[in-house]
Write a protein that binds this DNA or RNA. Structure first.
Length: 561
RNA sequence: GCGCCCGUAGCUCAAUGGAUAGAGCACUCGCCUUCUAAGCGAGCGGUUGCAGGUUCGACCCCUGCCGGGCGCGCCA
């Protein structure tokens, strides 16, 4: 509808250019907006405001000329000029019917588009290291990353969801030493407990499992405990597999799947880290200082140079990071998006600098990043502090069990990701009815309920019949609801374009609210057969949009509640 | 000190550069012999942190302050 109106305006402008009202070199960018106030019609354009100067006319006069030149359309009932020179469009009843027909025909594809044209996008998210179970921060990453993935799929992209994790390095040593200490019966109070050891209860569970000789399987590996407390290498492998398995359970409970699990260790094993270092040296961006090898990342906008190889000969984490992203580049994705916590934002400059220094033809701003800010968990009016080392822990699975998967996903994805998030666990749990996700799901269930009642009444509805009588939707509320449904595709497009999944949640809440209001004021199952069928058809369209939108959020659309 | 993010109603949050800044919670008051009251309606509540600037028009863009979070390691 928006596009249709823009086309009408475009035609009008062309004729105004021909008759000399507008200069021949006019380059209009036509914007059609949704109105907030229904007295402003259904859609509005500011075109006259932007062209008034070029036309040497005042905006209201120009608006009148544009309106006079607009071609006739079945979908537009009338136009009005308002305020400083807005052109307000009032859509016709016929356009309402046309839109509902479109939605029913598109069904679960309504709202999707093909902007991505089948191109490949890789989205990396969560990427938690296997040193403990997932917490709410990972949960936010999982919710945002997965919704973003769904949005990209809905807009025609071929999406690869990827999880990268560090299965080598110092913190894995700490993990292995902590488990080994537990295997030997030590406690954190013991003088010989490893420095920087992990104290959480899950370490004890892990140690017991290892000593029992359990076999653990995760999405990408499997390992059996050797029951030998002196086998540090075995403990290391077992611990990684065990915690990856735990994370798999967390993600499964959350309804998030990955296509690829990428191990940092594979970069070492396949010589990718060495090769990256060699290329950087060959390209002349490195130097030795104080026994370490440095990369001149300041050549690429970093505020200080970075150590690549430490005096002890080991590489800093950032080298495999660069090697990993080089690998992504070589895999030929059209677009790469990294979703990660804002506490790692400083890696962005570094990784991009390293990639530039490889002289591989990688664009400067590559790859894209979507950051999410911290999430604070509140319980009993106080912040729940999370610390792996201290052992105070609230896992993502705890949250899901307490609050429910749908509510947790919705809550974590429904807020703009670059704002801090307050997750009030008491509110989400004890007053779950206040949670917006139930409000939206209830709207969906209500539509289903109407159809159950229809069957009870031994009445029928079918799509073909319904589509014949849509002109019976004469109420203003029905027209406004339909226009809201018509906005859905543009919301999906925008959410994908600007990578803000929360826009879907906001839209769905508004739609649910409009529907609840309508439901309370107008009865659907009226005696008048045609009117009943028309309203049922509208209800089906609403159900489609609610279900499609909830699906993008990874939230279920229940038939009854 | 430097970098990134945030600052909107008592609280939690919305708002493609558009017209009178919106919801929920809380508080006050109404609506269930009628399709699920997990709902609806009405009221209360604002100098969008402050000051400039750009624009026909700014919560939104620019500059400078103030306040908060995060990051500034030869940890990841």
């Amino acid at each position: 509808m928006k596009q249709h109106i823009a086309d009408l305006i475009s035609t009008a402008l062309t004729s105004l250019i021909e008759n000399g009202t507008l200069p021949a070199d006019t380059q209009p960018s036509i914007m059609v907006e949704n109105t907030r106030d229904k007295s402003h019609g259904d859609f509005a354009s500011n075109i006259a405001l932007t062209l008034a100067k070029a036309a040497r006319s005042n905006p209201r006069e120009l608006s009148q000329k544009i309106c006079a030149a607009l071609p006739a359309s079945d979908n537009v009932e009338k136009t009005e000029i308002a305020g400083p020179g807005f052109i307000n469009f009032f859509v016709s009843d016929a356009s309402t019917g046309n839109l509902i027909k479109t939605i029913l025909q598109a069904n679960n594809r309504y709202g999707r588009n093909n902007d991505g044209a089948g191109k490949k996008v890789q989205i990396e998210f969560v990427s938690a290291n296997p040193t403990g179970p997932l917490h709410i921060g990972h949960g936010r990453g999982a919710a945002v990353g997965d919704c973003l993935s769904r949005l990209m799929e809905a807009t025609g992209w071929d999406v690869t969801r990827e999880f990268y994790y560090n299965d080598a390095g110092q913190q894995i040593n700490n993990l292995a030493l902590s488990v080994q200490a537990r295997c030997k019966g030590l406690t954190p109070e013991d003088p010989s407990w490893p420095e920087n050891g992990y104290r959480g209860d899950y370490i004890t569970d892990l140690a017991n499992s290892f000593m029992r000789g359990d076999t653990v399987e995760s999405a990408d590996q499997s390992f059996t405990g050797t029951q030998d407390a002196d086998d540090l290498e075995g403990i290391r492998h077992f611990a990684v597999a065990y915690l990856r398995h735990e994370q798999d359970l967390d993600l499964k409970a959350f309804g998030v799947d990955f296509d690829v699990y990428f191990l940092e260790s594979s970069l070492y094993n396949e010589g990718k880290v060495e090769a990256t270092v060699q290329t950087l040296i060959n390209n002349g961006f490195t130097y030795e200082d104080g026994g370490a090898l440095w990369l001149r990342t300041t050549d690429f906008g970093d505020d200080k140079d970075r150590v690549m190889r430490k005096t002890d000969g080991g590489y800093t984490y950032f080298v495999p990071d660069v090697a990993y992203h080089m690998n992504k580049w070589q895999r030929g994705f059209d677009k790469v998006i990294n979703e990660q916590g804002a506490d790692h934002h400083s890696t962005i400059t570094r990784v991009r600098a390293g990639l530039q220094a490889l002289n591989a033809g990688i664009p400067k701003g590559w790859p894209d990043y979507v950051l999410h800010q911290m999430a604070t968990v509140m319980r009993g009016g106080e912040e729940v502090k999370i610390s792996k080392r201290a052992g105070s822990y609230l896992t993502l699975r705890d949250l899901i069990e307490e609050v429910g998967r749908d509510a947790t996903r919705f809550f974590l994805a429904a807020r703009k990701s670059d704002s801090h998030l307050n997750f009030d666990i008491d509110l989400a749990r004890s007053e779950s009815a206040d949670n917006p996700v139930y409000y939206i799901q209830y709207a969906h269930a209500r539509v289903c309920s109407i159809f159950r009642k229809l069957a009870e009444n031994k009445q029928q509805w079918d799509e073909a019949t319904g589509l014949q009588v849509l002109e019976r939707l004469e109420l203003e509320s029905e027209k406004r609801l339909t226009i809201k449904l018509g906005r859905y595709p543009e919301v999906v497009k925008r959410a994908a374009d600007v990578r803000e999944p929360h826009l879907i949640a906001t839209y769905l809440y508004e739609l649910a609210s409009d529907f609840h209001t309508y439901y309370n004021s107008e009865k659907t199952l009226v005696d008048d057969t045609d009117l009943r069928n028309a309203r049922l058809t509208l209800a089906v369209a609403i159900r489609h949009v609610l279900a499609n939108g909830l699906d993008l959020l990874g939230v279920t659309a229940p038939d009854q509640m």
